[in-house]
């Protein structure tokens, strides 16, 4: 079992993703409104569809991080997803929160990285 501080980070990040997914399901259009116009133009599907898909991804990331199954995969997904959010939403006063979440996701990727790929 990984040390308790890492477990706390894992559970905290999982709950953040799970709750974010519920909020996006609740009001996908408002959350979609945060996307920058240039990124909006690149969307292959309608905004609502893309936001629902984002909510499903958040739900999966949150659930699997919560039950500690495939943590390395879902921590990676969380990290990439959070970086993409910063890119498509842009730098706003709320970005400071995302930086904290990115740091948490990075800590999980680091901690759950398979030992065989780590330098001895």
């Amino acid at each position: 079992m990984k040390p308790a501080p890492l477990q706390i980070i894992r559970i905290g990040l999982a709950i953040t993703f799970l709750w974010a997914s519920i909020l996006i399901f609740h009001d996908p259009k408002s959350w979609g409104g945060l996307i920058q116009p240039w990124a909006f133009d690149l969307l292959p599907l309608s905004l609502e569809t893309v936001m629902i898909q984002t909510a499903i991804l958040d739900l999966l990331i949150g659930f699997f991080l919560l039950i500690d199954v495939g943590t390395i995969i879902f921590a990676w997904l969380a990290l990439v997803h959070l970086i993409l959010i910063i890119i498509v939403v842009g730098i706003t006063p709320e970005t400071v929160r995302d930086i904290g979440l990115i740091a948490a996701a990075l800590a999980l990727v680091w901690a759950w990285w398979p030992k065989r790929f780590k330098k001895q």
Binding site: I11, A14, I15, L18, W19, L66, V69
Partner: peptide, 16 residues
């Protein structure tokens, strides 16, 4: 949100 958070902690604990 609090109900959700506390219950989710329970999910994590029991799955462990």
């Amino acid at each position: 949100a609090l109900l959700f958070t506390v219950a989710a902690i329970g999910v994590s604990e029991t799955s462990y």
